[in-house]
């Protein structure tokens, strides 16, 4: 969505009194930081830190499908080198962070934003195809 439309939408939502708008920008920044931290951990092969950044169900799905621990399974997924931040969008408790070579989905938890899916590529009229995802 173009920036002016997002701004207009935020103003309208504020006017309608439907959501806490003051923190939307901060939440997008927090989600972006969480995604970049995860990508940095992957790039540095810090697998324990990368696994800690995954949402519980995503980690569980990874370990169950690989039948091994997260730190051993995650390197095999060959997540792409992420590159620069292109944009992020937050709606409620969910976020999407788009990097130059990867797209990540995140969800808000009491500890902060955790990765629900990574290594995602868009498909026309279908959900993203993700190398790591929950459920």
């Amino acid at each position: 969505m173009p920036p002016w439309r997002r701004t207009a939408l935020m103003v309208l939502v504020c006017a309608a009194g439907l959501s806490g708008c003051a923190t939307l920008g901060e939440r997008e920044t927090a989600a972006s930081r969480a995604a970049l931290r995860f990508e940095r951990s992957v790039r540095q092969a810090d697998w324990s830190r990368a696994c800690a950044a995954l949402a519980p169900q995503t980690r569980q799905e990874l370990t169950e499908s690989a039948k091994t621990s997260c730190v051993k399974a995650l390197p095999d997924e060959e997540l792409p080198y992420a590159g620069a931040l292109r944009g992020s969008e937050v709606y409620g408790q969910q976020a999407q962070v788009v990097l130059s070579t990867d797209t990540l989905f995140l969800s808000a938890f009491p500890t902060g934003w955790l990765i629900t899916a990574a290594g995602c590529e868009p498909r026309p009229h279908q959900p993203y195809q993700c190398k790591v995802k929950g459920g």
Binding site: A16, Q94, F105, T116, C120, P127
Partner: peptide, 26 residues
Amino acid sequence: LAQSIAGVAAYNEEHLRQLQAPVSWL
């Protein structure tokens, strides 16, 4: 109008849960 604004936010939140891209208000 409020339905459309809240609706797109709810729709996009669900879309993100299902690993789909969000849509604009229009």
